[in-house]
């Protein structure tokens, strides 16, 4: 009697081996197989989902829960309702941090995004672009701490910047860059942009390479100059890349922490604090975990809301 479990291994048959399952009565196994096929992709995703669920979703839920409590890590959390949110909104330092964060967002859109786009368009067409691109990208391989340390020295009273200004006769512009607001925040945005410019330039360069050359050619034949080519052809076609760069910049600017922490610790006098620094200070210096949780929830809500609205608007326009 032939073994029904045996797998056909006929090398001449150019199809999947036939198993006992294939020879079974059609109805039930087909359903089982269909079910298996349906859930199979999810099984592959399961480890990643568990990881994300465990590490991210749990943390988000936990942060949300503690934002309604008073908790210092050593005594049990005490439910206080919306007190932390009310305290945050009434706290002038929170308002200042929020304003500084908005300045960071504006600066990040202006320098890395607009600057990256400008560089990509310019570098696309000039000789020696490979060396220039490498040089501009180079700071991106440095850690934020290194960038912060370098720029701290640049910005000291006798640092590179002030000495250079004095050397070229612009002594009036020399100043303690990290001391007074809003100069300190603007100075740190420049330092951050120095590092962020390269990656956004590369993304825009990739985007420019995906534009079909026929479109450019056709526009040129129709008499379009460089300006019209940029505004009417390249920029609209770069919209998906622009969306990515803008989203990344905005999220990055809302999360700005490490550079500020190393360069000024949010000071002097909390004048350069961002929301992320406020959150950290409240959590790990003041031990107000609930208040820090409330700041984290507010921060995340703003970032998520912005991302949804911006992506919807951008993708809708792209679809049109």
């Amino acid at each position: 009697m032939p073994d029904t479990n045996q797998v056909s291994t006929d090398p001449l048959r150019n199809e999947a081996p036939v198993t006992a399952l294939d020879r079974a009565p059609p109805e039930a196994p087909t359903r089982a197989r269909a079910l298996l096929r349906t859930i199979e992709p999810y099984l592959y995703l399961l480890p990643a989902l568990l990881l994300v669920g465990g590490l991210l979703l749990y943390s988000v839920a936990h942060t949300f829960a503690i934002s309604f409590t008073d908790w210092d890590l050593i005594t049990p959390p005490r439910f206080v309702g919306l007190k932390n949110y009310i305290d945050a909104v009434r706290d002038p330092t929170f308002t200042r941090s929020f304003t500084n964060t908005l300045v960071w967002t504006g600066g990040s859109l202006l320098l890395p995004v607009a600057g990256g786009l400008l560089l990509a368009v310019v570098l696309e067409r000039i000789p020696g672009q490979r060396i220039l691109k490498t040089l501009i990208y180079l700071p991106a391989i440095l850690s934020t701490t290194v960038v912060a340390a370098i720029w701290s020295y640049v910005y000291t009273n006798n640092g590179v910047l002030n000495e250079t200004l004095r050397w070229v006769g612009l002594e009036a512009l020399a100043r303690p860059w990290l001391v007074f607001a809003p100069t300190n925040t603007l100075a740190m945005i420049v330092a951050s942009s120095w590092r962020a410019l390269g990656p956004s330039m590369v993304l825009f360069l990739v985007g420019l390479q995906t534009i079909p050359p026929e479109l450019i050619e056709a526009a040129k034949i129709d008499g379009a100059g460089e300006r019209i080519l940029f505004w009417r052809i390249k920029l609209p076609l770069l919209r998906p890349i622009t969306a990515i760069v803008v989203i990344m910049s905005v999220i990055g600017s809302f999360m700005t922490f490490d550079l500020v922490w190393v360069m000024t610790q949010g000071g002097p006098g909390r004048s350069s604090e961002t929301l992320a620094v406020t959150m950290y200070r409240q959590a790990f210096i003041m031990w107000r975990m609930g208040y820090a949780g409330a700041v984290a929830v507010i921060l995340s809500t703003i970032v998520i809301a912005f991302s949804i609205f911006y992506l919807r608007a951008t993708l809708k326009r792209s679809a049109l």
């Binding site: 000071g267 002097p268 006098g269 909390r270 200070r281 210096i285 003041m286």
Partner: peptide
Amino acid sequence: PPQIVEQVVDLLGQFVL
């Protein structure tokens, strides 16, 4: 208490400036 210190040092920093 650190709840006072952590805020007052920032104010004193403002005073020095």
